[in-house]
Design a protein around this nucleic acid. Sequence first.
DNA 1: TTGTAAGCGTTATCAC
DNA 2: GTGATAACGCTTACAA
Lengths: 332, 332
Amino acid sequence: MRKKSNAPTMKDVAQEAGVALGTVSKVFNGIPVGKSYRLRVEDAAKKLGYQVNTYARGLKTNRTFTVAVIMPFITHPFFGELTEQISRCLAARDYRTMLAVTTSDLAVEQHCIEMVQQNKVDGIIALTYHPDLIVDDDLPFVSIDRFYSAAIPCVASDNYGGGVLAADTLSRLGCRNLLFVRHGAAVAGEPDKRGAGFETGCRQNGLPCTSFQVNDEDGKSPILEFLDAHIRDGRFEYDGIFCNTDALAVQVMVHLRSRRIRIPEDVQVIGFDGLMDPFLNKPVCSSIVQPIAQLAETAVDILLSQDRSRLPALTCLPVSFRPGGTTREEMS
Amino acid sequence: MRKKSNAPTMKDVAQEAGVALGTVSKVFNGIPVGKSYRLRVEDAAKKLGYQVNTYARGLKTNRTFTVAVIMPFITHPFFGELTEQISRCLAARDYRTMLAVTTSDLAVEQHCIEMVQQNKVDGIIALTYHPDLIVDDDLPFVSIDRFYSAAIPCVASDNYGGGVLAADTLSRLGCRNLLFVRHGAAVAGEPDKRGAGFETGCRQNGLPCTSFQVNDEDGKSPILEFLDAHIRDGRFEYDGIFCNTDALAVQVMVHLRSRRIRIPEDVQVIGFDGLMDPFLNKPVCSSIVQPIAQLAETAVDILLSQDRSRLPALTCLPVSFRPGGTTREEMS
DNA sequence: TTGTAAGCGTTATCAC
DNA sequence: GTGATAACGCTTACAA
């Protein structure tokens, strides 16, 4: 056994202050106690550098003030920002963040969930790719961007509305022949509604719309090949593109520029996410902006809400359009 | 008090298996036990969905298999990558990651340290900006990129060597008039050695070198003004620039290009960090690459090393040069 | 208002 | 090899 920790305990504080153990506990729990006692205890605690042991406390109270955050990656700007915001929200309420990075691998995700369950976290906020994870029923769980069932509250951006907004915006900016390209895991998550929204928006605006979608395994080259196939005599057939992520938008734009297609003069491009260039601190492209801070705040709110009997199954947060130099419009 | 958790305990497992409590404990700690007993216990545990409660365990053993990671941000690509790698290293050893994001604010940093100390973490890995943090002496602590004292092990890239390497590389690539620009917090951390290394490297190569350094409060515009001041008749005075971070390199390049200075034809630029563009998956610029995965691995190794009596005060990891299109050299 | 003591889930030391 | 039992540091009735 490890050398007995020499950190002071409540007992030490009680002895130092010359009061009973229970009194010390009360002081640290804000339970009224004679003023002179309180002062003696506080002095003693400061002198000894005493800190409550939340493990021991949790053993009694079944609350640890710790929330697990499970993310596939944090190197992707969207996930990184989301994780940071969640952690800040939690810290603001004096909750700790237990972080697990899963690479979106089922086994790892499951293992993480087991690990954090062992640590008796008070809840889990997760962005996962596998609907068949096994989680303790009575462990509060909030899913981000993935709606699994009415029993698991999900917080997401209004992906469908964002798609419509993209179509409306491109229409307003004068586009007449639209293209939607989608790239990414074919999970049945909320983000998949972006395309449906866009198609609806195009229909409402009376605009023709082509969709080209590839899944992760296909790599991204099919999209670039598709683009090439639609360049005739140096002119691109479409005058507006909606990409399901900013990352894809950037790839598409780099490719088109290499083919001497100008953006936004020849074709306007809108992405989804609203990411900022980490170095230049400006948008990477015109985009449908996800309210990351609100996503974080809302997820934390729901997770920690007192009354867990009636939680919204799906909370959709409003998105907005932000020009970013890849559409014909002055930037705000 | 919260509704008593209905999670199964060792006692439940013991009852279900018809063995004594201690026997169950032994099974879960790998202590030899009769085969038939072990099987009965394992079956019972599976049936009940039992998981060891690490809080209760920690109370006895003073080990929690949890490490706190303290970072100023995780939205910056370098910090994000570092955090992710550390978390993976820890997970590989069955350690949990407790994440604290501090915005590099002293009060927040101190508060985080107190929070994690309450949680009785087994150690802290931190990248902080304030040398005067108060940390429990006997709580294992590893600092990244900041050398505070011989008592606190620090893991960092070979920043000095990287500076020399940058000078050598620019020299090899034909530069004759070099510039070093530095931007960022004026903390007395390891990264500040980059400039010293570069200047030494220039001297060794017999090349003239100008240094222009601004601190965070100054904003970045002084650097851009400095650049402008050294453009005469559309020609830039320097033919090689070393920036103390990739982020700065990107800003410098955007500015120079807006002034019609070509990179790498007119001036070659080397940054520091070796970051990849998160969307295009290619280097953002030619750069001195920090071995992030090794930094993480080493920090974890040192933190968890058994014999803590003799730890290296400063571990410098080797950096390397990687072409990234902003120097005149084919990219590997 | 203050002190006492039981118990949270686990480990470890014992007799058996 | 197995099974009671006393801690670990804390909270919380309950008694003083």
